[in-house]
Design a protein around this nucleic acid. Structure first.
Length: 436
DNA sequence: GCCCGAAGGACCC
DNA sequence: CGCCAGGGTCCTTCGTAA
């Protein structure tokens, strides 16, 4: 049985990663209950429960360690350690750049509305593979979120309209959007299909524009050219700009003045969950030592200093200070580290059928590799069981490979350390071959 | 101590 | 009736080899 605290964290976990990130619906507790109710007893639910329990254990260990260390702790020394780091970080603070983060509003949904105006103002979602890629703002009012299983979204919003995704269209519209924005910064960094970072310092200076006027103009131009709206954040660095772009969503912008006071005021009451890189798990861990906002980081600097290895003092202090990178560079082709292909399918226990599936995946991966001109030395096979447990088996070669035959051969190699070898041992349901 | 490979996870869109 | 993706990056831990 679950105790009350565990139940709360599990309900929050089941609600999915996007909860709390943007535009919260009215009664999240009720929504979480419906979600848990709908998935109760399913293998997915059980897997989530196990993972949640593991986090609970991790937190217990952490708190125990804190207790132990606290006995002999020299608070003054720990605080001095934090202060020294703060001073060090403060010396790197750079407020000279105008950084902007642009985020398209419910991008996939908005493109669907363009192509089918009847969808406007309707509660609908773009689906693919049993989960939602995006929910329209109307649907979000019901607690429907991206990443949510379709059948659960239907429970929350019985009249939800589900539309299959049209990726080629999104790519096309993304290109149109990006080409407008690139006029404002030729070094713009696009982040996925619907986000971008820009450094507007030069453009503003050259056109004698304030940052806010510049961004308003750019957003209007994007709208004029594509009929799509976006939201933007303007701040001295990428982390702050990203958080700001969420403030006045949809179709809005938020300006954070480039002075230390404004930044410190901004971060003071900011939930740690808003920091990019802090997700559901890390939020729980950090919250367990009493930290909910970036301001709390300073209050608890001694404890964090003590638990530096577990919590990462430096990165938390950066969040507290609102200090982050302000370097905006275009995505470089060389920066690709891996390319992969994965497919989820109904449980297969028959080895022959499993190998056929793997063959199909190897084939798509081969064509992707061919298309991009890639090849790799490390082949990773990832497979997921019907319990939602997933495993990875990797093999590094002494040569680069790219052919389907090689991918297939390496993927099916027996692995000595493998507990559930999908092709030579206990049954399992397999997924992708990946290469580097 | 350091590098590398392997496995597992957290996180992002 | 059942039913929870697919594309990635980065980080940590551990074992083995040099």
């Amino acid at each position: 049985m679950l105790d009350a605290a565990e139940n709360t964290s599990l309900l929050r976990r089941l609600a999915g990663p996007s909860t709390g990130k943007a535009g919260l619906a009215k009664d999240q507790t009720e929504i979480n209950r419906i979600i848990a109710e709908a998935s109760k007893g399913s293998p997915f639910y059980e897997n989530e429960r196990k993972k949640d329990e593991q986090v609970t254990r991790r937190i217990e260990v952490l708190l125990k360690k804190r207790e132990e260390l606290a006995k002999a702790a020299d608070i003054a020394k720990l605080e001095a350690n934090a202060e020294r780091l703060i001073a060090e970080l403060e010396a790197t603070r750079d407020l000279s750049q105008i950084i902007c983060h642009v985020d398209m509003d419910a991008f996939y949904s908005s493109v669907e509305v363009l192509d089918n105006p009847e969808l406007a103002d309707k509660a609908f979602a773009v689906t693919g593979g049993g989960v939602l890629s995006t929910a329209s703002y109307e649907a979000r009012k019901w607690g429907v979120r991206s990443g949510m299983a379709t059948f659960i979204a239907k429970k929350l919003c019985p009249d939800l309209i589900c539309v299959a995704h049209h990726f080629p269209r999104y790519i096309e519209m993304s290109k149109a959007v990006m080409s407008v924005m690139r006029k404002y910064d030729s070094n713009m960094a696009s982040w996925g299909l619907d986000e971008a970072y820009l450094n507007l310092t030069q453009y503003c200076a050259a056109h004698n524009l304030t940052a806010e006027a510049c961004v308003a103009q750019m957003r209007e131009e994007v709208h004029r050219e594509t009929k799509l709206t976006c939201s933007a954040g303007i701040a001295p660095n990428k982390m702050l700009a990203k958080i700001c772009s969420d403030r006045n969503k949809p179709n809005g912008q938020y300006y954070l003045a480039p002075d230390r006071d404004s930044v410190m005021t901004f971060t003071h009451d900011l939930s740690i969950r808003k920091i990019p890189g802090i997700g559901r798990v890390t939020e729980r861990v950090i919250e367990s030592v009493g930290i909910k906002t970036c301001g709390d980081i300073y209050t608890h600097r001694a404890a964090i200093s003590m638990l530096d290895k577990e919590l990462g003092l430096k990165s938390l202090l950066r969040a507290y200070l609102g200090i982050a990178s302000n370097v905006v560079e275009p995505w470089a082709r060389e920066s690709t580290k891996s390319v992969g292909s994965e497919r989820t399918f109904k449980t297969i226990s028959d080895t022959g059928r499993l190998l056929e599936k793997l063959d199909e995946i190897a084939e798509t991966l081969e064509s992707d590799l061919e298309h991009g001109g890639w090849c790799g030395r490390t082949i990773t096979l990832r497979y997921k069981l019907d319990t939602f447990q997933s495993f990875t088996r990797a093999k590094t070669m002494d040569r680069y490979v790219k052919s389907k035959q090689d991918l297939f051969a390496v993927s099916t190699l027996p692995h000595p350390r493998c507990r559930y070898d999908p092709f030579h041992g206990i049954d399992g349901d397999s997924r992708w071959a990946k290469s580097l």
